Simulated assay, not measured.
Amino acid sequence: MAHAEGVLPDEVIRDHRAEALLVFASLRADLDRAGVETWLRKASELVAQLTAPVRGERVASVAVGLGPTFFVTGTSPRFGLEQKMPVGLTSPPLVQGVVDPAAAAQDVLFYIMTTSEAAAARFIEGLSGTRSLGLVKTSVERGFQREDGRELSGFKDGVRNVPGNLGAEWLS
């Protein structure tokens, strides 16, 4: 099975010390296309810094998602991208009890797996520093494994509770 580079599987996600963070970002409603491009360039720099090797070892993996409100707010198009909105975002499924409903209305999501709290904190601090570029707010959801061996959304956490007889081959 093929995976996108840096998403699954990689050495950070496989690391039992890795923690998950969902960092939601909301942008100013009046931000124009040039403004969002500037913000996205800065956010891309922050992701590159977070995923850069530290002493020869990667400490973070990041996947970035754009929410429906990045393309359209209400019935108003944003940033000239309304024709590029993925079909699945036109009527996304409702997921009950997984994440704060307000988080679903955010423009950008950074899904971070990291073995370094310091690196994650630098990323969040850097992201907060983009307020002058159009960021309105951020919110952070921290990932964890429940006592029943399932992750926050209720799915079996196959990264951390791999059956003993399958070992590393199961993850590759």
Rank of each mutant, 00 (worst) to 15 (best):
residue 88 G to A: 10
residue 89 L to E: 02
residue 62 V to P: 00
residue 86 P to Q: 11
residue 123 F to H: 04
residue 135 L to H: 00
residue 95 V to H: 13
residue 87 V to F: 13
residue 143 G to N: 10
residue 103 A to I: 04
residue 127 L to N: 00
residue 120 A to S: 10
residue 50 L to T: 09
residue 65 G to S: 12
residue 76 S to A: 11
residue 79 F to L: 10
residue 47 V to P: 00
residue 143 G to C: 11
residue 50 L to S: 09
residue 50 L to D: 00
residue 62 V to Q: 03
residue 130 T to Q: 13
residue 88 G to I: 14
residue 43 A to N: 08
residue 139 S to F: 04
residue 126 G to D: 06
residue 61 S to M: 06
residue 139 S to K: 12
residue 79 F to C: 05
residue 125 E to N: 07
residue 116 S to F: 01
residue 63 A to D: 06
residue 92 P to Y: 14
residue 115 T to E: 08
residue 79 F to M: 11
residue 67 G to H: 11
residue 100 D to Q: 10
residue 59 V to P: 01
residue 133 L to R: 12
residue 119 A to P: 01
residue 82 E to R: 15
residue 133 L to N: 01
residue 143 G to R: 09
residue 126 G to I: 05
residue 96 Q to R: 14
residue 65 G to K: 09
residue 103 A to R: 12
residue 132 S to T: 14
residue 108 V to F: 01
residue 66 L to W: 07
residue 42 K to G: 02
residue 88 G to Q: 07
residue 117 E to K: 07
residue 116 S to L: 03
residue 135 L to K: 03
residue 75 T to D: 14
residue 46 L to P: 09
residue 131 R to L: 06
residue 73 T to P: 00
residue 134 G to H: 03
residue 53 P to V: 03
residue 107 D to R: 08
residue 80 G to Q: 15
residue 88 G to F: 15
residue 132 S to F: 06
residue 82 E to M: 02
residue 133 L to T: 11
residue 60 A to F: 05
residue 101 P to F: 13
residue 102 A to D: 15
residue 89 L to P: 02
residue 62 V to Y: 01
residue 131 R to S: 06
residue 109 L to C: 03
residue 100 D to I: 01
residue 129 G to E: 11
residue 125 E to L: 03
residue 134 G to Q: 00
residue 109 L to Y: 10
residue 44 S to D: 15
residue 58 R to C: 11
residue 66 L to K: 15
residue 111 Y to V: 09
residue 62 V to K: 04
residue 102 A to F: 08
residue 63 A to K: 01
residue 76 S to C: 04
residue 42 K to L: 08
residue 101 P to A: 03
residue 96 Q to I: 08
residue 64 V to Q: 12
